[in-house]
Every structure is written in C-alpha cells, then in structure tokens.
Design a protein around this nucleic acid. Structure first.
Lengths: 336, 336
DNA sequence: CTGAAAGCGCTAACAG
DNA sequence: CTGTTAGCGCTTTCAG
C-alpha cells in the first residue's frame, strides 16, 4: 500500500540511505557486491525512487514540455512521436500541454513552468499569439525553449520550420499552371508565422504569374468549425467564386470538401484544392488530395535534439541553430 | 536559473515563509491585507511555487497519467481532449504516456509510476497486453486506475467501454443485409478485449444469418504497416476473396482502400467495408466510409471523472462504476 | 568502501 | 494574526 522509499530499503539491507543512493547511481565508491545486493532487493521490493524528491534535490526535473495548440492533428501527433523518441533516449519525460489555440491558455501554461516543472520547452504557438512577453519571461528564467513549425520571429532561439514561403509559392504556382485564375487562400491567423509566410508565397506566385490578387479571396479561418463552414460557404457561393484554393491547415480539408459537395461544385473540375496536411488519408479522399506534407516526425526529432543539447551544455547557443527543413509537394487528384 | 522561491518572497515582504504559504492557500489565519500584499508581490516577482516541493511534502503529485498505445489516432486524441477537460477543472496535470503497442513499454511506464509520479492512471492497454501483473502491482500500491476502451477483464476496476459486441454484430449484420456472403474480419490482437468482443459480435451475426464462417477470413493485423499491407493484399487476392470486411481500428482504413485500388476492386461493388473509426475524413473518402464511431471525448471525460472521484474519496469503489457507452453506426458509401 | 548529515522548497502543526 | 520548525525522499559533501 505504502510506497516503499529509500529508507525502507536501507533498513532492509542494513545500509545507510547514502550508500543506497550511490549504489543506484553506480558510484565508484560502492563495491560491486553491495551494488548488486541493493539492485536486487530494490527489484524485489519494487522500489522506485520518488522523482519529485530527486527533482527537488537535484534542481532538474527530467521533464520537458511540448506546448502545442492541439493533439487531434496529424502534424502535431507525428511531431510528438519524434520528440518522444529522443526524450526517451535521454531518460526524460514529455509533458504534453495543449493550448487549444488560446493565448490565455498558452500564457497560463508557460507561467506554470516558472515554478521549475520542466527543464525545457518545445513549442508551437497558438493562432492567437502575437506577443512574446510570456515566452521571454520564461526564457529569462533560464528555461531553454525551441520553436517548431509555428514560431515567433522576434524571439531569439532555435526555430525548426519548413519552407513555408516556398511551399505557399509552389502550391499556388501549381494551381495557376493547372489553369486557375482566381485563387482563394484559407489562413488561420493574421499573426501566425506559418500562415503569413505561406500567404507571402501565395502572393508572390500570383504576382509572378500576373494572376489577379484580390484580398477578398483571403479568408482568415477561426477556431470554430461551425464558423469556418460558414466562411468557406460564403467564399464558394459568393459572386467571385475562386476556382482554386490553397489552405494552410489540415483541419480545413473536410469543410472545403463538404462545402463543395453541398454547393454542387466538383473538385477538381470546378475547384482545385491544395492543402498543407499530414493526413494519412489524403490519398484516399474523394478526390485524393494534393498536399504540402511536412516532415513532422523529423521536425520533432530535430527540435528535441537541439533542446537536449542546450540542456546538456549551458554554453550551447540555441539562437544559432535554426533549421528549415523542406516539405514535400504531393500532387494528387484534387488539382489535376 | 534564478527561480525565485518562497524564501525570497518572505525576505522581500518581511514575513515568514509559513505566512506566505498560508496566504497562498487562502488560509483563514491570514489577514486580507497580508494576503493581498503577498499575492501582489508574488505576481510582481513572478513567483510560482515549485510543484515538486509541494508534491514531496503533500505526497500527492496533482498529476494523472494517460497510458495509451498511440497518439496519432483520432479516437485517442479525442479521448485525451475529454480527459484534459476534466483534469483542468480539477487543477491536475495530464501526463500522456505512449506504449506504441508494446507490452514492454507498458510495463516500464507503469513501473515508473511506483515512485509516486502520478496520483492515478487512465489506461487503454497495448495490443500485446495479456498479463495483468504490472497493473495489479501498481493498483496494489494504492494508485487508482480506470480503463477506457481497451480493458483487461480480469482486473477489478472501472472500465469505460463501448458496446463492442453489439457494434461488431451490427456492422456484420449490415454487410449481410447488403448482400455480402463472405465477410472478412481484421482484428489487431488475439488478446485485446475490444478486438475479441467485436469479433464475437461478428461471429454471432454470421451465425444468426447462417452465413458461412471461415476462420481463414479472420486476420490478425500487426503493428507494422508494411506487414499489414501484405496481409490485406493476401486476403484480397486469395482464392476465397471476401466481399465484405469489418475492420476494428481506424488505421486499417488506408491500407484496405489502397489494396482494393491496387487490385482493381471497387468499393462497394466488389468489396463492402465497415471500420471502427473516429476519422473526421470518413465522410469525404472515396467512397465515404461506413463507420462505427465511438464517443471518444465523452469516454475520456467519464473515465477521468471517475478517477477523480476515487482520488477525492478513498472509499469510492471504482469496481462498481464500469460503464458501457453506445457507439454510433454511420452508414456511408463504402457499404451501399 | 560506508555512514552521517545538510539541505532542495514547501506545508502544517504548534507556539506565540 | 504571524512565526518557528520538523520533515516529505533524495543526493551529496565530508568524515571515518
């Protein structure tokens, strides 16, 4: 019933707690024989050191946090797997914290970390995040932080991103080459780095190919699915209906398909559609979906690896370690 | 790492640490005036109590764990949201631990909890789990545990499941009514509760409708996508190709669709397909997918609520609290 | 090689 | 109303 602790173990073995602790950490001060005895009895009695006591004493928690908007999203869940794979190797635990795209939540979560709950943070900011004080605050307290995917430009630390501008450009260029001359853009935020860079790529492509740019065709989607449905429908039944759409996040896929169907628009004949997405089902949608697919697992891995480097040596300068990893453009039935 | 602590605060305010602590916990012993002063300076100095010190002292961590096979799965990611919504309300943190369907991982994770890392556990067992010693061990140490979805029958605690038998039955019955007379079943484990109950429902339906039962048509899928592709292809190009399939987990959707396409089989004309799935994209697949959809969010919520009840009062008997919540059967294009 | 003891930051019982 | 103090379980000097 009662969690057995180091003292119980010591009593059991007629040793001091200090010796036990050292044996556990494989200290050179302890004889092989004693180490074995300790390890063996520990196993027998099911002794597991209390992590909070260790954290308190050692001033490091052996926990890192992953702060993300949402877990029900292929990109983030794959990234988590990447992060976890390296954390495990380092003997660290991963705390997954969800902001649900709310800036308030994000602030609260980071604020909590001020108490020393985690040794480092991996983060993708919420769609509402435009200020950086809460992050700078935490970093100022010595907690290293690495961004992945959704970054805050003004913060000086490692940022693992994909080639958002190029991808936005390529997606748009592709639509143009497929004959679209009126292309809509579905963003998710006016302050979000990824949304803006992808938008810039989109704008550049329109410009390069002399396709009309119309700010009316740029929709800022919300965090509310019902509201998004309305926005998308409005776009698709408006007087100036686009014949191509670039969407910046996976969760916009279903609404666009459904709205098209409801309005009797055929994809790709009436409307060509490209989406930034890691959906496994992209290839079996009706029609199969042309995507910009990010190396999610890899990005998580890279970000985590950098974080651990900075955890391991204090003089490691994260701000020189940003990386841009390329996305893959996968052409499928929704645009051809 | 200049994390400010309660002592610093005390010095700043010319108060004792005891007073600060009490002020923080809104003790009746402390004057309003002092409380305000404390709270105000705490905010100003960015003081956040060290959670590990509190945990150590109070012998409760204010953390619960969610032990699941995988996060890149709609059911589990939705369930996490449900769990999180109640944990937040209770001021608890959620540790998400992934077994990746490995029994070894699962054991290691639960073993770690013996140290007191979490106050309670919500769990869906791995596909490999057939023994229960590791779980009983933890529960024996006073850590309450609630199962959701994938349970271990022999363990006496609350289990939040869906009507797996009935759903398996209904799915199969539907296929039969649509004219299938040779129905395959894709399971994921021979020891997994959900897989087995769904299988039993399938068998009962075959029996009730006098449809031939052939154990060759029951495939145990693995945790390896490549291997699964092979198994599914073998089934679909074998001499005794089924004209209907019931699959027990979401991740089998893409392989089945792709294999069918590769082999020139039309869904639903040549092969009708039902899948247990919470995929948001089910309705826009080609063809849209008939699913058994579980109330994932709700299940997470129920399971978490029960766990907190048992955390709040020791005499709460979890073993009397199991619930079966109904799934929804959603007929779509893959079977009609 | 082993043991004793001083904390890590916080809470709560007890004293004033 | 506020202060003092004894630990929670563990690690880590320092002594032996």
């Amino acid at each position: 019933m009662k969690n057995i602790n180091i003292k119980d173990l010591a009593r059991e073995l007629n040793l001091s707690v200090g010796t036990i602790s050292k044996a556990f950490h494989d200290s050179y001060e302890i004889s092989e024989d004693t180490k074995n005895r300790v390890l063996e009895t520990a196993r027998r009695l099911n002794y597991v050191p209390n992590p909070y006591a260790s954290s308190l004493r050692g001033r490091r928690s052996k926990n890192i946090a992953v702060v993300i908007p949402e877990v029900a999203d292929s990109f983030f869940s794959l990234a988590i797997n990447g992060i976890e794979s390296v954390a495990k190797e380092k003997g660290y635990h991963v705390l997954i914290c969800l902001t649900h795209e709310s800036f308030e939540n994000e602030k609260t979560i980071l604020q909590e970390f001020q108490g020393g709950r985690v040794d480092g943070v991996l983060m993708s900011v919420s769609r509402e995040t435009s200020e950086s004080a809460h992050i700078l605050n935490l970093m100022g307290n010595g907690v290293p932080l690495v961004f992945f995917d959704r970054v805050l430009d003004e913060i000086d630390t490692a940022k693992i991103t994909t080639d958002d501008f190029e991808s936005g450009y390529k997606a748009t260029e592709h639509l143009i080459q497929q004959g679209c001359d009126n292309i809509g853009f579905l963003g998710i935020s006016e302050c979000l780095s990824i949304s803006n860079r992808r938008l810039e790529g989109y704008q550049k492509a329109l410009n390069d190919y002399h396709v009309r740019y119309d700010s009316q065709q740029i929709i800022n989607c919300t965090n509310d699915a019902v509201q998004n449905d309305i926005l998308i429908r409005e776009l698709l039944q408006g007087p100036n209906r686009p014949n191509g759409i670039v969407a910046t996040v996976e969760k916009l896929t279903t609404p666009v398909y459904r709205a098209s169907e409801a309005l009797g628009l055929n994809i790709p004949a009436d409307l060509k559609f490209v989406c930034f997405s890691n959906l496994e089902t992209a290839s079996i949608l009706n029609p199969s979906l042309t995507t910009i697919t990010q190396p999610a697992f890899e990005m998580g891995k890279i970000a985590a690896t950098l974080l651990f480097k900075s955890l391991e040596k204090n003089d490691f300068n994260l701000s020189k370690e940003s990386q841009v990893v390329p996305s893959r453009f996968i052409m499928r039935g929704s645009t051809i």
